[in-house]
């Protein structure tokens, strides 16, 4: 029963999801909408509790075991508690205050303050690292070690030159050639990959709906 019930639910909801694509009847569309949005949201709400539980458990275990770098776990747990308290009791922003006194003169520490002044700059910092990683990755990719890498280097060089005014100075047809590389060979290979991807999605969905693929249940019969 532990296995049969999930397989049965997947079979019914999987077939129903496919049928809803072809049948525009309001009752079917409404039921499909409920399955896709409402039910999924309810499951997500319960899972979030499990997720927070997982974070707490993971870091408490590290602290208990005095694992390497366990002091960072203190920071995570403290930050989690403070953010949760401010989020639940401290209000959203200045215009929507909570029951906690989170405004000190012109300074406020509402959840929006934490998000705008901590989360956003930290995320932007991580994102900006991408520029450096891109440079190191490009260096590695463009080393002409074999025929494929040489072709890649050559194509990238032409596309880059074609995108800047200097390219036109070298030859007036260079920007058009760069555009052709992007529009024809590049798009053709992208579409080839996408065909494979769509077939893969189809195959995986069919295997899961029919109960042939059970990896998501942890494998086994």
């Amino acid at each position: 029963m532990k296995r049969r019930l999930p397989l049965l639910i997947v079979l019914i909801t999987g077939i129903f999801g496919a049928v809803a694509f072809f049948v525009p009847y309001p009752a079917i569309r409404a039921a499909d909408e409920i399955m896709r949005n409402d039910v999924q949201r309810i499951i997500a709400a319960f899972s979030l509790v499990l997720g927070v539980g997982s974070i707490v458990q993971h870091h408490m275990l590290k602290i208990q075991r005095r694992a390497q770098y366990y002091s960072y776990s203190y920071i995570t747990i403290i930050a989690l508690i403070i953010t949760a308290i401010i989020g639940v009791f401290g209000g959203i922003d200045v215009t929507r205050p909570g029951i906690l006194p989170t405004r000190f003169g012109s300074f406020s520490i509402h959840i929006q303050t934490l998000y705008s002044n901590m989360m956003v700059p930290l995320a932007a910092t991580m994102f900006s690292l991408l520029a450096f990683f891109m440079a190191s990755a490009a260096y590695r990719a463009f080393r002409a070690r074999n025929l494929e890498a040489t072709l890649l280097l050559l194509a990238a060089f032409i596309v880059m030159l074609g995108a800047v005014p200097f390219g036109r100075l070298i030859h007036h047809q260079l920007p058009a050639f760069a555009e052709w590389i992007l529009a024809v060979p590049n798009t053709a290979s992208k579409r080839g990959i996408l065909f494979g991807v769509e077939l893969g999605i189809f195959a995986t969905s069919l295997k899961i709906i029919l109960g042939i693929e059970r990896g998501w249940l942890g494998g086994g019969k």
């Binding site: 974070i55 458990q57 993971h58 995320a123």
Partner: peptide, 13 residues
């Protein structure tokens, strides 16, 4: 239980 753990749903975090 420590093998699989939830981190955050924020992309760069």
């Amino acid at each position: 239980q420590d093998i699989v753990f939830f981190v955050t749903d924020q992309q760069f975090a």
